[in-house]
Design a protein around this nucleic acid. Structure first.
Lengths: 329, 329
DNA sequence: TTATGCGAGTTAATCGATTAACCTTTTAGG
DNA sequence: CCTAAAAGGTTAATCGATTAACTCGCATAA
């Protein structure tokens, strides 16, 4: 059925070793021989068996990427950067979504690990239940449990402080915080740094919501609170959900209430009004993660590396100064 | 280094065959023996080598999904449906993006095929250059080139007619069409059916744009055309791009100009105003595609099956009747 | 009593590549 | 002219599982 190296070797009149060397360029092969081999490959339509090669060499030449949720536009962007870098370094990419619960995350990771050389992993839980069995680079986690692995993350704390400073400078005293899930490490870092930097003027209310455009009814209700002059959202998806809710309540953004997100997903610039947000360097994150993984797979790099990349504020118009202060500026 | 079946067998005091049978449930094994084997597996932390299994059995237990662009929110939704169904049928999923050009699409497909049992493929080009070497289910293509493969697609022609009927009923006579790329089969079907159904009242202008929120400058310019009362977009992403451009021109949707999209991506409901669109049954498409693939892999099903799934109009408010006619309704 | 079949295990071939070790011829250097 | 190295090839072991074919008791049926 299947055309194997052996068939090619027979047709080309050489040994399988030679065919392999031609295909992989692992040894010099005489011009004429190589041509005969290549002709045979062509004629027979030979296709390498990856499983066989992997079994023999122990290398898949594939990296895995495990992320929480493709419908959050942040992750496709990340996936593209990861895929691009992987391909540049000679790897394929196997992408997997971890699904809702931690069980399915563990399962997905376990399944992934069996088919790749290493994984880039964006864990969901603050206290992950699973430890990778292969080289892994963790994105967005700085906790102690996975400290043994390389990691890359945005400077979430700086992001939180950025938001706080903005609130201060623009004179917002009554803040509503749509924080991310309590067990998300990145959401927690942002929230902590934000609250610390706000100091006295702690948020009027804090609500934990999932990273999704779909706000829980409770959150929608809270957004009717007219005292609040600035809503800080866990990320852009949440911010966009909030935007919709605010409009439904008849509150104008930014005239009646300012709104700020996090991530800078493509849609942030599209919604009305365009969303001011804190940008994560998504392409850099993906690139650096793969590069770290590659280095690790090459056997270099002893101590785990923890990269923290800077974030920046992107002004788009959904945040303005409080009126009384506006005159002063 | 690696713990193999042999190690487990040695520790459990049985042959590798027995271990394999315990692990796969392929033969009855005495209670006590099984327990010893399971204990050994646990104690040694044994993990199956997928490449070895695949080499031996010829089955990967993984399906591939090749799609054009993860940043178009239609595809993540599709990917989720595909992943879910695959998992339900006992497969893993390997997801790959085909990238910009057809070369990289062929490469991606070739790479994918080597690691999966079959692929779900959403080709970009009207005339694909590559023919799959494995069982494949094609999504959104009804052309002759790939007719030998199973396929699933929305009823794009019906979608086009739906849009035309809407235009008729609401009295729009001057239509701008932001058609998709000329080499996209689905875009072409829609466009053809639309134009046929419009008959006399063919669009004032037709512009081919890529499936992206980022409209080419030419398209942005055209949208300033105040004669046009209805803009039909190739898909929701394009529609949302158009929405932004229209606003930039100071034209209100839907008061000054109606706008309709295609797909019904999650964001269609979020933008302002919410976008009326033609919904593709994305979950059903994904599910049916995997089911077809599974059947084919099981060796059943002789003749290729071509499934065409119905679309439906989703009214959200971005399309209204022309004023003079509005009174009549 | 003899065959038959089942239950529980084992043996060993096999999947399709890679690659260390080895063998000839050439080639080049001194 | 002699020797070392390079060039060009081959042989055969190996990666880690699966599974057809076989063995050996023992129970059941004829």
């Amino acid at each position: 059925m299947r055309v194997t190296l052996k068939d090619v070797a027979r047709v080309a009149g050489v040994s399988t070793a030679t065919v392999s060397h031609v295909l992989n360029g692992t040894k010099t092969v005489a011009e004429g021989t190589r041509e005969r081999v290549e002709a045979a490959v062509e004629a027979l339509g030979y296709r390498l068996s990856q499983p066989a090669r992997t079994l023999r060499t122990g290398r898949h030449r594939v990296l895995g990427l495990l992320l929480p949720d493709l419908t959050n536009p942040f992750f496709p962007s990340l996936a593209q950067a990861v895929a691009e870098t992987a391909r540049r370094l000679g790897y394929g990419l196997m992408l997997s979504e971890s699904g809702a619960d931690y069980d399915s995350e563990s399962q997905a990771l376990a399944a992934l690990e069996q088919r790749v050389d290493g994984v880039v992993w964006i864990p969901e839980a603050l206290h992950p239940v699973y430890r990778p069995h292969r080289p892994a680079v963790i994105i967005d986690r700085v906790g102690p449990e996975l400290a043994a692995f390389d990691s890359v993350s945005s400077d979430h704390r700086a992001g939180g402080r950025l938001q706080a400073r903005l609130a201060n400078e623009l004179g917002h005293r009554c803040i509503g915080l749509l924080a991310g899930p309590a067990d998300s490490i990145s959401a927690c870092s942002r929230r902590e740094a934000l609250c610390e930097a706000l100091g006295e003027k702690r948020p009027e209310w804090i609500l934990e919501v999932p990273f999704s455009m779909q706000l829980p009814p409770e959150a929608v209700e809270r957004l009717a609170d007219t005292r609040v002059t600035l809503v800080i959202a866990a990320n852009d998806a949440v911010a966009i959900g909030a935007l919709k809710a605010l409009k439904a309540h008849g509150r104008r953004v930014p005239q009646d209430v300012s709104l700020i997100g996090f991530d800078d997903i493509p849609w942030a610039a599209i919604v009305e009004p365009p969303l001011s947000t804190v940008r994560q360097p998504v392409r850099a994150i993906g690139r650096r993660a793969v590069e770290l993984l590659h280095r690790r797979l090459a056997g270099q790099g002893g101590e785990p590396t923890h990269l923290v990349l800077p974030v920046e504020y992107v002004e788009r118009g959904s945040v303005i100064a409080l009126e009384q202060e506006a005159a002063a500026i």
